[in-house]
Amino acid sequence: MSTYQNSSTASQPYSDPTPLPANVPKVNELGVTSAPLKSAAFFLGAYCKEYNEDFMLCKQENRDPGHCLKEGRRVTRCATELITKMRENCLEQFDAHWNCLELNNQEYYPCRKPERTLNKCMFEKLGLTKAIPGSPKGQKAIHEVEKPVFTTVQR
């Protein structure tokens, strides 16, 4: 039975006793927390569409985690690339939006103001737009509605 040891006060840095086998190429994990991921989700869906679909089709073939490692690495690399690009081009807007999400229970609707500046920046710099599949035609998408019913108490 091992006891819990706090890694920040450990005398030696943590080393993985069972790393991935050497024949699997190394890919750095994205290491982004939930709020930035939620902020970037729709751009991720647009930017990495092909890799994501490829990976999910592969998973549909076989649920074995060893079966789609190559496709999975591509997905992670693409996501890392997108986050890097976002931070290079729209760092200020990105930070504003995900900090707002952190403060608002990770709901989109209280954070429309920073979201719009982020969307504008992403469209101008990277040409990516936020599109919600399946939203009704001929209406403004929910993130573009000027006066929504659901808002925060303080505007």
Binding site: L20, N52, K59, P65, V75, I132, P133, G134, F150
Partner: peptide, 23 residues
């Protein structure tokens, strides 16, 4: 529509998180 937005934001993140978990 808000629900749809939330669901799709999660759907877009599924491959990324699944790939990490699979490794």
């Amino acid at each position: 529509e808000l629900q749809r937005e939330k669901v799709w934001s999660r759907i877009h993140l599924v491959p990324l998180l699944l790939a990490e978990g699979d490794r």
